[in-house]
């Protein structure tokens, strides 16, 4: 290892302690959304996340990349406490949003999930009508009640998700009758209908064809004006295209956290460089 790489490596390491990206993307927003410090997570005996510190900035797209099984999904689920559903999980460390520890006993996970929405890898619309898919959660959270309000909100959410024109004439058909890409946009509409602060997306395009993928990438670009987006992807081009910040995970650790441009043009760690250039697994 030559001197330059060693220097880069230590530089990257020290920045990991602070949770800040190594270099900053100056065109991006720098208000903090979620602050993660020294997060450790175990599945039973098996440690899946090790000392993770990461700042997630508002109204940006942050991409999580890394080889399979490195803990990206696990990390994502820490942000809205979906890991609570897995009985063997134990976590330590801080995940802070709005100055509150989300793992605190007084934090209501339902309130958390209303502010941190989620889109899953496989499109999973409710087996109800398209309208109900979007209207259900806002009604449940008492954001809307009257029919007219619901209709307005459904239309807005579907427009924001870029699906309105395709479904406006069949709002009362089942959501499951749509194509895969449309279903995924329906799930995005469902997530944004409750006006969350953050949207978590776990490989949202991995089950989709290239055209639907491009549609959703465009959508993420538009949505980040209103929402903070954290997305997991295995597609390097996608991360490079849509993300403002990129975190590289490896074996449960964050090896490098950087603004996307630097990460893809001039990564500071050898592991990230190998992974991005396809020399790694």
């Amino acid at each position: 290892m030559n001197m330059q790489v060693a220097e880069r490596e230590s530089n990257a390491m020290s920045s990991q302690q602070s949770g800040q990206p190594v270099t900053r993307n100056d065109s991006a927003n720098h208000e903090l959304s979620i602050r993660v410090r020294d997060l450790n997570l175990w599945y039973g005996q098996n440690q899946a996340l090790k000392n993770i510190s990461l700042d997630i900035f508002q109204k940006n797209v942050t991409a999580l990349i890394g080889p399979s099984g490195c803990g990206k999904s696990t990390f994502l689920r820490c942000l809205n406490r979906m890991n609570d559903l897995i009985p063997s999980v134990r976590t330590e460390g801080l995940v802070e949003m709005d100055g509150r520890d989300v793992n605190d006993a007084r934090m209501d996970e339902v309130a958390l999930r209303r502010r941190v929405g989620m889109v899953f890898q496989k499109p999973n619309p409710f087996p109800k009508s398209i309208f109900e898919n979007v209207a259900y959660a806002p009604r449940m959270h008492d954001l809307v009640s009257r029919k007219a309000e619901q209709e307005e909100l459904v239309e807005q959410a579907l427009r924001d998700a870029g699906l309105w024109n395709e479904v406006k004439d069949k709002l009362h058909q089942p959501g499951t009758s749509l194509s895969g890409g449309q279903q995924q946009r329906l799930c995005i509409a469902r997530a944004i209908a409750v006006k969350p602060d953050v949207i978590l997306m776990d490989e949202p395009t991995s089950a989709l064809d290239p055209i639907s993928t491009a549609t959703i990438e465009d959508l993420m670009d538009k949505l980040k004006k209103q929402f903070t987006i954290v997305t997991v992807t295995h597609n390097m081009q996608q991360a490079a295209r849509v993300a403002d910040y990129t975190a590289f995970f490896h074996l449960g650790e964050v090896i490098e956290y950087n603004d996307t441009k630097t990460m893809f043009s001039n990564p500071h760690t050898k592991k990230a460089e190998d992974y991005i250039t396809g020399r790694y697994g």
Binding site: M82, V110, A111, R114, F126, Y136, A137, M140
Partner: peptide
């Protein structure tokens, strides 16, 4: 998961 994800 979908239900919990929207805050049920």
């Amino acid at each position: 998961h979908a239900a919990f994800g929207v805050g049920c």
